[in-house]
């Protein structure tokens, strides 16, 4: 049991550090990018796909966990893939901007 609680304490430490890190990293994101931020973090919590794979692929599974795991993997992969693709689509539009603007300025002059 001692070993178990040692693990728990390490996990809690990691959890608390992640909270501070999350706040720290986000507070530097400009409002300009808050929508991509929301969908980007949305994609990151799709990491639950790791848990879904544990369930779907567990060697000690039965029909019930197999069905649950299957659905969980479908949902989690939609979360991950959709989240990253949609964020990429948004950020792509932000990235294109510089050359467009320069072209316009050149045109104006």
């Amino acid at each position: 049991m001692g070993g178990h609680y040692a693990t728990l304490i390490i996990e809690l430490t990691v959890l608390l550090l992640a909270i501070f890190l999350g706040i720290e990293v986000i507070s530097k994101v400009p409002t300009l990018l808050h929508t991509p931020l929301m969908s980007g973090t949305n994609a990151i919590h799709g990491i639950v796909i790791v848990g879904a794979i544990f369930v779907a692929g567990a060697s000690d599974q039965d029909t019930l966990t197999q069905v649950i795991g299957f659905i969980a993997v479908v949902l989690a992969s939609a979360n991950v893939v959709g989240g990253f693709v949609v964020t990429d689509r948004m950020l792509e539009m932000f990235k294109k901007k510089e050359p467009v603007k320069k072209a316009n300025e050149a045109g104006a002059k």
Binding site: V14, A18, I19, V25, I26, T41, I44, I47, V48, G51
Partner: peptide
């Protein structure tokens, strides 16, 4: 899972 989940949890709360 703990770190990624909590990064999102903390940043989402702040947002």
């Amino acid at each position: 899972l703990i770190v990624s989940g909590m990064l999102v949890g903390a940043s989402g709360t702040l947002l």
